[in-house]
Every structure is written in C-alpha cells, then in structure tokens.
C-alpha cells in the first residue's frame, strides 16, 4: 500500500512538534548568604541529590581551582558512588569563590520533573586551611520550600531559592 505523501508529511510535522517542544523548565533564583566566621575565599558546591541521597547533578561551584574540589566531602563521595565524570559535571559551571558576608545570587534553569520529586538541593563548603563542611545547608526542591530560608551549619549562613 502506498502512503499518500500529504498525510504522511502532516503527521511527521506534528510528530516533530511534539518531540521538539522542550519539557517545561522553571527559572529558579538561588540566594546563598555566606557567614562572617572566616577570612579569605571559601569554595562551595551546589548540587542535587535524589531522595536516596544519590548524586543527580551539579548546579554551580563557587571557586575555579579544581584541586580543592576534593574537599567538598559529600559531593566528592556522591560523585564517586555514582561513577560520575567530575570534570564533565563541573564544566562551565564554576565561578568565583565567595568571601565572608557575600550574598551570591544564581539564576538556574531546572527541569519541571526535578520539583516535588524528592530531590534535595545541597551545598558543601570548604575553606583553605579551614574546615570542610559536607552538606553545609540543604533544602528540598519542593514548591512548598520556595522562598523559605534554610540555615547553614558552617560557612554558609543561609540558603534560599525562589521561583
């Protein structure tokens, strides 16, 4: 049976549209306020883990020099366990380190599926010749948690995301 070109063309066009339209993403504004209890530039990694604590993705790293990334304790372990390629994970996502009292604002595009699915947004922090705080602060990636500031336990004073 020969397929008529016109309906085939229309169908493929429709299919293209369905496939080409991206999944909905939300723009999230993440505000990280640093504490005042340190001097110098602190490094911090912002990343997502799933409900079981397994590594999902890295959102941003404060601090350019990769040699200090092994001090992001929980991030390092999580990426280890997931077998992730760290260099690829942080590629294009690093920025300057943060100093005491800094309020760093990040604008991130996160896929809809990540919300209200048990994912947790976590931040590990570390300081040269200081301490390493794995999970300095964490906030569940849920619409209910938007706009609510969460306290950090180390170099991060508070963490908050807004939709």
């Amino acid at each position: 049976m020969r397929l008529h070109p016109a309906p085939l063309g229309l169908a493929s066009l429709a299919l293209t549209f369905v496939l080409a339209v991206p999944a909905a993403a939300r723009e999230v504004k993440l505000t990280t306020t640093m504490a005042r209890n340190f001097i110098g530039g602190a490094y911090a990694a912002v990343y997502l883990v799933d409900a079981e604590g397994k590594y999902a993705q890295t959102l941003h790293v404060f601090g350019y020099n990769t040699r200090y990334y092994s001090h992001f304790r929980n991030w390092w372990r999580a990426t280890d366990q997931a077998g992730a390629d760290r260099a690829a994970e942080v590629d294009g996502k690093s920025g300057a380190s943060v100093r005491r009292g800094d309020v760093a604002e990040l604008t991130l595009d996160l896929a809809d599926e990540l919300f209200d699915a048990g994912f947790v947004l976590r931040i590990d922090s570390t300081l040269y010749e200081g301490r390493d705080y794995g999970t300095d602060a964490e906030v569940p990636l849920a619409t209910a948690s938007a706009g609510v500031a969460v306290d950090g336990r180390g170099y991060v004073k508070s963490l908050q995301f807004d939709l």
């Binding site: 001097i39 110098g40 530039g41 350019y64 020099n65 010749e129 200081g130």
Partner: peptide, 21 residues
C-alpha cells in the same frame, strides 16, 4: 583560630590578595 594577620599576609604572598585567580 588561624591568625587573621597571618592569613591576610599569606593571601598577599601567594596571590597578592587576588584569591584563586
């Protein structure tokens, strides 16, 4: 506490206070 003075001078010595640049 690591001496604030020592840390500042150390930053200056290693990278002229420009952090990790």
């Amino acid at each position: 506490a690591p001496s604030a003075f020592g840390t500042r001078i150390g930053d200056l010595h290693r990278a002229f206070g420009m952090g990790d640049s």
